[in-house]
Nucleic acid binder design. Structure first.
Lengths: 188, 188
DNA sequence: CGCGCGATTGAGTAATTTCAAATCTAGTGG
DNA sequence: CCACTAGATTTGAAATTACTCAATCGCGCG
């Protein structure tokens, strides 16, 4: 069951079939339509999500009304407002579907329980968040040292499929430039 | 021994005295003079460091020769080039002392061993890297949605002591602006 | 065919950078 | 104690870059 989920675990830790069965029994499938909002700002974040199919954006709207993309997530990506999820505070992000989406979700309680019960789940969580840490490190260094042009190229060749699936305005909101600036980049 | 280190662990997990003794036996004290370089780019990163005393910067020099600060670390902070440390690749950062420094360090091998042996060490590592993840998240959102002025204020009131201890040019290199721009911010 | 959304283009404005010079400050040696 | 120097900070002015706001273009879908 859930081979994509199984692969996630197997790539980082070793699990017996029984152990995986036990873990995966805490996940449930959810489906959402394009445009549906999975998480609203100001809510308690009860779930962490794993994308089986489709595409999602996590974003925040600043006090001038501008949208800033925190993360895109497609197949095999994990999504949540992790800060709010972990601290039990209210979410500051919106999570919304850019396509029809099929997800697995696990509740905070179950996840916490699994981490306490199983060293290997704790380890899996550590390694996953560590790789998230690294992507963010990379993104920060890119924001500090590269101009919009090379951040665009970098994103483009790391995730070429994103550009078939996501409007350019959202790419701009991810890179931290306006859509107009992004549009002018390619020519110059 | 090492009460500051003990507090790090006790804040996140529960340990018996014996367990803490065992963990702490893997750390050793190192001292460096102001200006000393603890890690050079291109080296294997063998250690994770915990700052007992002093102040450190972790930075990268881009291909135009500009310095970008990844992290400052003072008392009770953890430092390493975590990506290189974890993946065993060569470091891309320089770690250098801004003051005389006293550190605890643990080797990659020992740390890995402790995480495998002790669920609680694995958990500690997960929680620590998670909070690092959150700081980075905050920093990215600040880079995306705030101008230099408010990033400066934000840093200033989160770490006021930094401004007594660090030259402004380095603060600028952390915030992603030139020293001249930073200098002009306060007046306007 | 025409509506509507996304993408592009243009022109003026604002913010940041660059390069150069001036000012300030802390530490050193006389 | 003072003068001096190196490093840090500030200031000025021009150039660059990105932004805003408005208008136009292009294309898929009903």
């Amino acid at each position: 069951m859930y081979p994509a989920l199984k692969k996630q675990f197997e790539d980082l830790i070793q699990l017996t079939d029984t152990e995986f069965e036990y873990i995966s029994s805490h996940y449930q499938v959810k489906r959402f339509k394009k445009h549906a909002i999975i998480l609203h700002p100001g809510e308690i974040v009860n779930y962490e999500y794993f994308v089986l199919k489709g595409l999602i954006k996590t974003f925040m709207v600043d006090n001038e009304g501008k949208e800033h993309i925190w993360q895109f997530a497609m197949e095999d990506w994990w999504v949540s407002d992790y800060y709010a999820f972990q601290t039990r505070e209210l979410s500051s992000f919106t999570i919304q579907c850019l396509e029809d989406v099929e997800l697995l979700r696990i509740s905070y309680t179950d996840r916490d329980k699994l981490c306490r019960e199983m060293h290997s789940m704790e380890r899996f969580s550590r390694l996953k968040i560590t790789s998230g840490f690294f992507s963010q490190q990379k993104r920060i260094m890119a924001l500090l040292q590269n101009d919009a042009q090379s951040r665009y190229k970098q994103l483009l060749d790391q995730y070429p499929s994103l550009f078939q699936r996501v409007p350019k305005a959202l790419i701009a909101a991810y890179l931290g430039v306006t859509r107009e600036t992004l549009s002018r980049l390619r020519i110059e």
